[in-house]
């Protein structure tokens, strides 16, 4: 669930009818973070919903043979959480144009993960108000295993 943080833009819950304007966003703003507590059950749900049945995500023997203590989280599930940080913030008032994610570290279920986002820069291109966002997924020890970036378009008050 989304946890609003002090100093972050107020977007407490996933919702719609938000009015997030380009002009109201500043470099360095933090997006509300998303804390998740994945379970092995969620990995099975994700395998079924996504069609990704690579066994290292649900078969303990396979995971241990590959040197892990437990099954590991699908990278694409981590990307879903990171994208959600952006889409929760946007509501229905903007559009995520680009989203790029790198799986640098392995993550395991039954540990808290925290997904964070921060406004890196903003610019106007043509009529479009574009905002670059830096994202990261941290494991329970605070290590960033999964960095990501997003480029979003926000509506402009001053357009036209």
């Amino acid at each position: 669930m989304s946890t609003p943080q002090e100093g972050s833009l107020h977007r407490p819950l996933p919702g719609i009818h938000t009015h997030l304007w380009f002009e109201d966003v500043s470099e360095g703003d933090e997006l509300p973070s998303l804390e998740v507590h994945p379970t092995t059950q969620q990995l099975v749900m994700y395998a079924g919903a996504s069609g990704d049945f690579v066994p290292i995500h649900y078969d303990m023997d396979v995971a241990q043979a590959a040197g892990h203590d437990s099954v590991i989280i699908h990278g694409a599930l981590k990307s879903a959480w990171l994208a959600q940080v952006v889409t929760d913030w946007l509501g229905d008032s903007g559009w995520m144009r680009d989203f790029a994610v790198q799986y640098r570290g392995i993550d395991y279920p039954n540990e808290k993960k925290t997904c964070r986002g921060r406004v890196k820069s903003k610019r106007v291109e043509g009529e479009a108000g574009l905002v670059e966002i830096e994202l990261s997924l941290e494991d329970a020890s605070g290590t960033v295993t999964t960095p990501a970036t997003a480029l979003v378009e926000l509506p402009r008050r001053q357009s036209r």
Binding site: P14, G15, I16, H17, V36, Q42, M45, Y46, G48, A49, S50, L77, A80, W81, Q84, T87, D88, D92, S93
Partner: peptide, 23 residues
């Protein structure tokens, strides 16, 4: 899919709310 990733955004699951949204 939205349930599997744990995303309760109404744009993915609440037809009436999604219809009234900008989307």
């Amino acid at each position: 899919f939205a349930c599997a990733i744990g995303d309760a955004n109404p744009l993915y699951s609440d037809e009436a709310a999604a219809r009234e949204s900008a989307i």
